[in-house]
Design a protein around this nucleic acid. Structure first.
Length: 497
RNA sequence: CGCGGGAUAGAGCAAUUGGCAGCUCGCCGGGCCCAUAACCCGGAGGUUCUCGGUUCAAGUCCGAGUCCCGCAACCA
């Protein structure tokens, strides 16, 4: 069986990790962990995109060599692994020697296909900024920072990629794979874009003006434009082109990206793959953006949410739980402190956390800290997993969390209804109920593992179970055998002040 | 008529093929004492953006309009 391969986009190292990227990589992590629970071997890739003019300039500003600058940022991004408790297996940097060689090989293949050619290209240049400008950076055809200066048009020769040749092929790809891009409205969006006609895009820059890039094979005067080299990371990280066997075992994979990346991932990169004679990606999942207190995040508004700060304040799992559960998986969502605290208290403290205490305490008090003998499931556990899996396959993390919360509520409801404490006083046997509750809690622990790994492991650990050894492929009631000792540990989720 | 998304309770969101407008949080009242002042039950709160149409029946379908948010290409 082919390995499961998932990758994030590579963040550009011109700023510290953004909460939006934290969302993306946590989503990918949840999927990766879920697939491991299914028993699959998982390749999970992330890394850093390190070429381009902006980075070169930024390094200059800070008085560092470009490589030093990149090293510093790459380390900072790799630090997310610990900060967010991520399980990625590959971390690629586009300045890695192997990646650069792969990008050059990719270029050669596209060249052989006849899809790369040289063309005159007019760069719009603002003398005030001494920078190239794109149309969307201009207001009324002028640089907003230097409106008095006319924009100069500078002719230069660039290499172009024959994107226009791939319109029909891309449309066919979308038609044949109705779930190629999720959510489906994003597929519609890209389909419309492609239908509207494609223009070839520039894939190189003059080295003299922009030295920080992968050299174009056979032309010392040019370096690759960052996009072209960065996209190749999805396969260079797998060892392409050398490790053909390894590559075949892993490619194609699932790519997680933000909505700003829809075109690059689901059209440009796909056309590039076709040109190089390689299989297309398996699926692209597009997530939305996070607003801050209802507004677009921006440095000037001072409302940028730092993943580091909120993790330090609330803990990893609280942050993961909010990002995956409280934000709509397919659309933009809002981060607000108030809502964050509300959500945390309602579902983690009062929900899962409190239920765990209730059940474990009852096992201690009424069953000598031992799971009673097996009894028939009363919580619809099998059906729960069916929904769980179907939601995970659709990246509907919010639904996954909602279903899990509902199961927690069911347990609370049954406890209130059955009043085990009363039955004990009356000398009735409650061991069946205690087993059912313990069993259900163990399933809740398994279900939450991809979402909040640490806390979920603590739930499972109370019964001596280990998430690493769990397999949910054919899971049904009965993962507790009866007789396990159940130990109530520390409180799972501390109440906020 | 550039493309796409959206407008439903105070907030955030749901409503298979048209079929009693629901969920979470918050608010009010009651219950319980296993639990992290947690949990359970009940209640208040809606002209589903507007106008018109189709239908026994419209949040859902059709037409017109208003308002919000992205994107509009080589910006990583």
């Amino acid at each position: 069986m082919k390995n499961f391969y998932i990758t994030t986009t590579l963040p550009y190292v011109n700023a510290d990790p953004h909460i939006g990227f934290a969302l993306e990589i946590i989503q990918a992590d949840a999927i990766a962990r879920y697939q491991r629970l299914l028993g699959r071997e998982v390749i999970f890739n992330t890394g850093t995109d390190e070429h381009g003019l902006k980075i070169h300039r930024k390094a200059e500003e800070q008085g560092m060599s470009t490589q030093e600058y990149c090293d510093m940022y790459a380390a900072r991004f790799d630090g997310l692994k610990t900060l967010l408790n991520l399980s990625y297996t590959h971390f690629i940097r586009t300045t890695d020697a192997h990646h650069k060689a792969a990008a050059q090989e990719f270029w050669n293949r596209c060249m052989e296909s006849g899809d790369i050619y040289k063309k005159n290209y007019q760069v719009k240049y603002c003398v005030g900024c001494e920078l190239e400008k794109t149309d969307s950076e201009l207001e009324d055809g002028k640089c907003p920072l230097h409106p008095k200066n006319e924009i100069e048009l500078i002719d230069e020769e660039n290499y172009f990629f024959r994107f226009s040749a791939y319109q029909e092929k891309l449309l066919k790809l979308y038609d044949e794979n109705p779930r190629f891009v999720l959510p489906t409205h994003r597929l519609e969006e890209i389909r419309n874009f492609v239908k509207g006609g494609l223009q070839d895009f520039s894939i190189s820059r003059i080295k003299e003006k922009m030295p920080w890039g992968v050299p174009v094979p056979g032309d010392d005067d040019h370096v690759m434009y960052v996009w072209f080299d960065a996209l190749v990371n999805y396969i260079s990280t797998l060892g392409w082109p050398e490790g053909e066997a390894n590559f075949q075992e892993n490619w194609p994979g699932i790519q997680v990206a933000g909505k700003d990346n829809l075109r690059q991932q689901s059209a440009m990169w796909q056309a590039m793959l076709m040109s190089a004679g390689l299989p297309n990606s398996e699926q692209i999942f597009i997530h939305g953006f996070i607003t801050s207190e209802g507004q677009k995040m921006s440095k000037s508004l001072g409302n940028v949410v730092s993943p580091k700060e909120i993790v330090e304040e609330f803990g990893i799992d609280a942050v993961r739980f909010y990002l995956l559960g409280a934000l709509p998986a397919y659309d933009d969502g809002d981060f607000s402190r108030e809502r964050f605290q509300e959500y945390y208290t309602a579902h983690l403290v009062n929900g899962v956390g409190n239920l765990t205490s209730r059940i474990l305490t009852m096992l201690e008090k009424y069953a000598d800290g031992k799971v009673p003998k097996q009894a028939q499931d009363i919580f619809g556990i099998q059906e729960f997993w069916v929904n769980y899996k179907s939601n995970m396959e659709k990246f509907a993390f919010d639904e996954v969390v909602k279903e899990t919360n509902t199961l927690v509520g069911k347990c609370d409801g049954i406890i209130s209804e059955q009043k085990p404490w009363e039955k004990v006083k009356n000398g009735e046997d409650i061991s069946d109920l205690l087993y059912q509750l313990a069993e259900c809690l163990a399933h809740i622990g398994g279900a939450l593992y991809p979402i909040i790994p640490q806390s979920a492991q603590r739930i499972l650990g109370a019964f001596g179970l280990d998430a690493q050894e769990m397999n949910i492929e054919n899971i049904k009631s009965g993962i507790l055998q009866g007789g396990e000792s159940a130990t109530k540990g520390e409180i799972l989720f501390a109440r906020l002040d």
